[in-house]
Nucleic acid binder design. Structure first.
Length: 462
RNA sequence: GGCUGGGUAGCAAAAUGGUUAUGCGUGGGUUUGCAAAACCUUUGACGCCGGUUCGAUUCCGGCCCCAGCCUCCA
């Protein structure tokens, strides 16, 4: 029984699809005006694990995964103007970059990636419905606002009371709003801004409405899971609930899931603070799987501290796992084994990935123990290890490829290494230990580690 | 100020009312020409103060500290 922490009720609940034949998941994706950073990588990976497991449980053809792309907003317009380019050109570039990064991280593609600019009709229709039903009003400045006071449950998701929000010191005062807490659905066009026609004049949608329009259009008014970063809980998701429920008259989402932040020096990594590393920055120094592993070392709702030291640890951990798998032909995993049962218990307990990683190591140790004496048993353990690792998107490379530095490694250099190893094997046969050690040290300086085993000498990149 | 989370050994990070987390690191051993890898073993922790209990890191209360949201943000 899969149990998921529902942020709407603040409780772990048994997950039951609304319709067992169509499990529906929506995740708030990226605003595409820059490269994705490690915080974005976390959302991608966390919900990739959710998606993979839902597919495992219900069948891939029964799970619909939608992850939107925000391709029009203030920052995009600003950046495009800065660059002196059309905003569509800017967003196209960063959508492409996002796909490259996500693919490298082993993130499966969602079924659809709806974009705000391609959903103008649905967005305008929804705003129209809200105006017609009296939940929204056109203001004197040409903007259309959502009247927060009309939606009684407002604040339920974030645990906020309207009174408390009003008492807060940071609520902006805007003369054209009836209430400072009202939020914008349609922004009237300003000079040098892209705009679309609407019943309220030229303009563009507010941020929140696009997700209400796209999620309900792609998945129906009422769907199973809505996810995103914790910073979206308020106001973004709170506003989505208000808009969607008011516009459709139906219940919106059953389960809300939010992942915790990536931190640097105990502070949230964010674009506004400028303390972020892009996925590309990190990929220049670490294999993408190291990033994925690092993200899975902490539970998805906990904070995750970013540092080189932690990435080094993640790399060492993956090296251990791949070393265990090296030279072992995995057997198809038998159903119903003790490790599998523990894996299921862990992942079904609100996606407890740290517990799963612990299991991977127990299996790696089991493989190493049996490798020499009981090859059959080792192959079985390897099969079990790969079975559970694949469900969290790990250990998908060939062990040799990972240990030798992956596809970036220059093969001619690899040939040179092989030659030196042959020379060293001759020296060892001659019991010329000085020469043997000299070659090993020479390679060591280049970051190549040699390991002499019963089956011969193997090497890996440090 | 209001509202959320969290404080576990050198670092990272789970579970759990009484029994080994796990990884990296450290000490010892096996193995190796010497190493490396691997295996065995050692070291270890539950923010502070009370309460409940035969027994609490785990439940309850108070306190201290940290992070986040209340403004764009995954």
């Amino acid at each position: 029984m899969l149990k998921v922490h529902n942020n709407l009720t603040k409780q772990k609940e048994v997950f039951t699809p609304i319709d067992g034949n169509n499990v529906r998941l929506y995740v708030c994706g990226m605003t595409v005006y820059d490269y994705c950073h490690i915080g974005h990588a976390r959302v991608l990976v966390v919900f990739d694990v959710v998606y993979r497991y839902l597919c495992h449980l219900y069948g891939r053809d029964k799970v619909t995964y939608i992850r939107n792309i925000t391709d029009i907003d203030d920052k995009i317009i600003h950046r495009a103007n800065e660059n002196g380019e059309d905003f569509n050109q800017l967003t196209a570039r960063f959508i492409e970059a996002m796909h490259v990064d996500a693919d490298l991280l082993g993130v499966l593609r969602p079924n659809e990636e709806p974009r705000a600019t391609l959903y103008m009709k649905q967005i305008i229709d929804m705003i129209g419905a809200l105006v017609d039903k009296g939940y929204a009003y056109a203001a004197s400045n040409g903007d259309v606002y959502y009247d927060v006071s009309k939606f009684a449950p407002y604040g339920r998701l974030s645990g906020k009371q309207l009174e408390d929000l009003r008492a807060g010191e940071r609520v902006e005062i805007d003369a054209s709003k009836d209430d400072p807490l009202d939020f914008v659905l349609w922004k009237a066009v300003k000079p040098d801004e892209p705009s679309w026609d609407s019943p309220w004049g030229k303009g563009r949608p507010g941020w929140h409405i696009e997700c209400s329009a796209m999620s309900t259009h792609c998945l129906g008014n009422h769907f199973d899971i809505h996810g995103g970063g914790l910073d979206l809980q308020f106001p973004h998701h709170e506003n989505e609930i208000a808009q969607s429920c008011a516009a459709t008259g139906d219940k919106f989402v059953n389960v809300w899931m939010h992942n915790g932040f990536v931190r640097i020096d105990n502070e949230k990594m964010s674009k506004s603070l400028g303390n972020f590393f892009t996925i590309r920055d990190v990929l220049a120094r670490y294999d993408a799987e190291v990033i994925r592993y690092f993200i899975l070392t902490s539970h998805y709702r906990s904070p995750l501290n970013y540092s080189d030291h932690h990435l080094d640890t993640a790399k060492a951990a993956l090296t251990t796992l791949y070393t265990a798998l090296r030279g072992v032909e995995a057997e198809v995993a038998a159903q119903d084994n003790a490790y599998q049962a523990r894996f299921i218990a862990a992942i079904e307990d609100d996606f407890n990935t740290p517990e799963i990683l612990a299991l991977l190591f127990e299996l790696a140790k089991a493989i190493n123990r049996e490798k020499a004496s009981n090859a059959d048993k080792a192959r079985q353990y390897a099969g079990q290890l790969l079975w559970m690792a694949s469900l969290v998107g790990l250990l998908q490379q060939q062990p040799e490829a990972f240990l030798r530095g992956g596809s970036d490694a220059v093969s001619e250099h690899d040939d040179a290494i092989e030659q030196l190893i042959q020379q060293r094997l001759q020296a060892r046969a001659d019991k010329n230990w000085a020469e043997s050690d000299r070659i090993r040290d020479e390679l060591k300086v280049q970051g190549i580690v040699l390991e002499d085993g019963p089956q011969g000498t193997t090497w890996r990149r440090q």
